[in-house]
Design a protein around this nucleic acid. Structure first.
Lengths: 149, 149
DNA sequence: ATCGTAAATAGAAATAACTTCTATTTACGA
DNA sequence: TCGTAAATAGAAGTTATTTCTATTTACGAT
């Protein structure tokens, strides 16, 4: 994972074994994971691993843009290592947790409208579509987590 | 507030004094409020008012579409009674909590892209822009709440 | 190689947003 | 005015997430 080392270097984050393991775990799957999920995987690899370490690293990696955050309709925060480097948004399945890219960002269109009316500073914009993917629809599973919010 | 009575009737929700008060409080402001904020206002009007009542009502009213939910970058849920009945999205200021409408929904554009690739069922889509509004920029306040997530 | 230092970590404890529970009260249609 | 389902108060519980502090570790400089 030399590409990770490079990214961490750029962000001024040390390449600790825990941090690299978190990246590997996330890189190994195409579904989003909760901090607790990641922690469980970590426990297979490390005898000593604290949950706060997982939380902190996920947060730092997300802040550095190495991983993406998925804000589930249940309002819990999940993480996802997206191979797509371009700016884009996500469709997230609430059943199987699969993530699909939405290769279209509406933000430029909206920015026109916004610059006229709002004239402030944009800190972040989130666009996310939650639903049930076709595979889950076919297998007729029920969503495993509540979708409220 | 006969328009509220009508809406509550449609939703099969009883027009209790507490519920109407919550709607009045939200209707009286153009900023989003936390459940705790609403609770504080309620305490001025009712000697007995439980926080769970506020939570439950806000949730029910949001579920019924009478009020809008604002998912702050701090991941807490806020509520806002939006006079705009059309489908639209919001720009929310993290400093003064003001809400501005974004009168453009990118979803129809995105839907084209999505229907090809995802082919699942969409449960919800959220688009929200967070930032600092022009008034707050001018007064050079610092954001009062952290923006992560 | 080894050292010094700031960064990272473990583990325990705390926080706080939110939910659940149960007995009591209330809105409102009949 | 009555009956009933809905709504509420208040207390207690839950749980994701954060904070704290002492210890350990990565890694640039020596």
């Amino acid at each position: 994972m030399p590409q990770f080392l490079q990214k961490l270097r750029e962000l001024g984050l040390k390449a600790t074994p825990k941090r690299l393991a978190i990246l590997e775990i996330l890189a190994d799957t195409r579904i989003y994971m909760s901090p607790d999920d990641v922690w469980s995987s970590m426990k297979d690899r490390f005898s000593k691993i604290g949950l706060p370490t997982v939380y902190r690293n996920l947060e730092d990696l997300a802040k550095g843009g190495v991983i993406a955050t998925i804000l589930h309709p249940n309002r819990q925060l999940y993480y996802y290592l997206c191979p797509n480097e371009e700016h884009h948004h996500h469709f997230v399945c609430v059943t199987c947790r699969k993530v699909d890219d939405i290769n279209f960002c509406a933000f430029s269109q909206i920015e026109r409208d916004m610059s006229r009316s709002i004239n402030g500073t944009v800190l972040s914009h989130t666009f996310q579509v939650s639903g049930v993917c076709s595979a889950c629809l076919e297998s007729e599973q029920r969503p495993s987590r509540e979708g409220s919010a």
